[in-house]
Design a protein around this nucleic acid. Structure first.
Length: 232
DNA sequence: GACCAGGCACATC
DNA sequence: GATGTGCATGGT
């Protein structure tokens, strides 16, 4: 369970996580995530963005909107090949068509047309159920929990692992659950903070911390010990 | 033309 | 339980 590479006291760790957030917030401003108009659209976007640039997801969502299919019952009833063609710009389209179907079948069974019954389900229970849905892994489940159902879970993605392992705060080998609990244990449990923190990480990762990083303009530059990540 | 992007399931060792 | 592979489009 050695999630962190450099050893910090608990207080140092917590202060640093907040300081990092402050830097990103100053650079990008409040992100107001997730980019989606409805709860259902957030769920769809969460699947479509799996290993895919958001730009491509936007095209797929626009296709769904344009054809009037961006609602639970439409996805439930649409022919799978037709669905695949609509979401084609998002990549892995045949695969994602099946994943969307499987998610929507679960949501409908569990929450009804308006997803209203899901409000009463405890977070840990809901998380376990989402993870049991075929095609829904930990990141997709947590994105849905946080951004569609407003539950305080921390979303971990490729950028999170890259940025925070390069900073020496988590190990490169840390798995999803390790990283998630690292953040959940070291940040105040506030919905709005979890929401915007992940959004800031994506903005930072997208702009500055790709495999080929651009550290000079990164808001975290002076906090990031390059000796560590240059060995990766 | 190579590399990358807000993963996940499944096969194989 | 670790590691490898298929899935696919679109931007840089």
């Amino acid at each position: 369970m050695a999630a962190s590479l450099v050893s910090y006291s608990e207080k140092e760790r917590k202060d640093l996580l907040l300081k990092i957030y402050g830097r990103m917030l100053k650079r990008f401003g409040q992100r107001n995530w997730w980019p989606g108009e409805t709860q259902f659209e957030v769920c769809v976007g969460a699947v479509l963005t799996q290993n895919t640039a958001w730009k491509n997801v936007e095209k797929a969502i626009a296709n769904l909107k344009q054809s009037g299919k961006l609602d639970l019952e439409s996805i439930l009833n649409i022919d799978i090949d037709e669905l695949a063609l609509l979401i084609r710009p998002a990549g892995y389209f045949r695969l994602k068509a099946r994943r969307l179907k499987s998610l929507v079948e679960y949501l409908y069974k569990r929450g009804g047309r308006k997803l209203s019954k899901i409000r009463d389900v405890q977070t840990q229970q809901l998380r376990a159920e989402l993870l049991a849905v075929w095609g829904i892994g930990p990141e997709t489940a947590d994105s849905i929990l946080l951004y569609a159902f407003e539950r305080p879970v921390f979303v971990v993605d490729a950028y999170t692992k890259r940025i925070f392992s390069r900073m020496g705060l988590i190990s490169r080998e840390a798995d999803y659950e390790e990283v998630r609990t690292f953040f959940e244990n070291n940040l105040p449990e506030r919905l709005q903070l979890f929401n915007d923190y992940h959004a800031q990480i994506v903005a930072t990762g997208h702009n500055y911390c790709s495999p080929k990083p651009r550290c000079e303009e990164c808001p975290l530059e002076d906090l990031c010990p390059k000796l560590i990540w240059r060995q990766e």
